[in-house]
Design a binder for these strands. Structure first.
Lengths: 153, 153
DNA sequence: TCATTGTTGTTCGGATTTGAACAACTCCCC
DNA sequence: GGGGAGTTGTTCAAATCCGAACAACAATGA
């Protein structure tokens, strides 16, 4: 049982700032998406990921990893999006177990309408506040953290 | 209706890295706290804030702001913590409406036991991965974002 | 071939979270 | 004083989210 390495003042400041900023940002994003489109942030992320995927489709598991949500959480959200006709499920050729989530034309259309307002928030409260150097530093640091928390990627 | 300023490649990389890293970190923290102490992250944050507060007590509203959670969310969590005897409510002298959440001795004791494991996770997946320069950059950037999203602070 | 092990997605129960509505109280200013 | 506006904390309904358990299928190796 080794001695605890407590956070020093600077480390604590960084952690607190990161934690609070990310929570506040999450709330702003959630609020904007909800009022502008009736979507949650995870729902938006699903649409965005699908939109960028080949043939606008992805395996459920892959998608769950991409939006960092549990399998059951994704099942639920895909069901919600399916009700609205933004996404549909398809059998996965070559794997009888698998399910492909596919972005519909309607989903694609709606995403195009929603995206500008979302990007606006991300810019206003984060990206536009950063210098190019800070942008690079954050990319490097967060990518490193990501690799530490994920087996691959 | 101005033209949308989409995110460039570097901006997108920064945003994606930040978003995914913060989600992954949140999950790791949640998982560790749950298994080690049966607490959620917000619950831990409440205990930590109270612990650092004068007389280990805070007004509900102030506390809600501190942990970045809704008023009703805080009411719920304080009720949970009260059931376990980690926190108790007290009348607020000088304001008949107000309620003070107070960290109990038991709460203080438990926090001491839980903190090391929590700090370990924060270090392993974020703080220890950063150079001193990165630490400062992140503090500055996130504090700026925080000010943009909050009236004061 | 066939049993074993691993993967995939869903279902289910339970916990958490939010915003709106509300009642009680405080503050301000005439 | 006293009324209107603002604050404070709770309750409530609804939505979301997770982990565990599960059934179906895939992959592996003897």
């Amino acid at each position: 049982m080794s001695e605890t390495r407590w956070l020093g003042a600077r480390e604590m400041a960084a952690w607190q700032a990161f934690l609070i900023a990310s929570h506040l940002l999450e709330r702003r994003i959630e609020e904007q998406l909800k009022s502008a489109a009736g979507l949650t942030h995870p729902q938006y992320e699903i649409l965005a990921l699908l939109s960028a995927a080949p043939e606008r489709r992805m395996r459920m598991t892959e998608l769950a990893r991409g939006v960092v949500v549990s399998k059951s959480g994704l099942t639920y959200q895909i069901a919600q999006l399916e009700k609205r006709g933004l996404v549909k499920r398809t059998d996965c050729p070559g794997d009888e177990r698998g399910v492909l989530a596919v972005l519909t034309d309607e989903g694609s259309r709606q995403l195009e309408q929603i995206a500008p307002g979302h990007v606006e928030v991300v810019r206003r409260y984060l990206i536009d506040l950063l210098t190019p150097e800070e942008l690079e530093t954050i990319t490097a640091a967060m990518s490193r953290a990501q690799r530490a928390m994920r087996p691959s990627v």
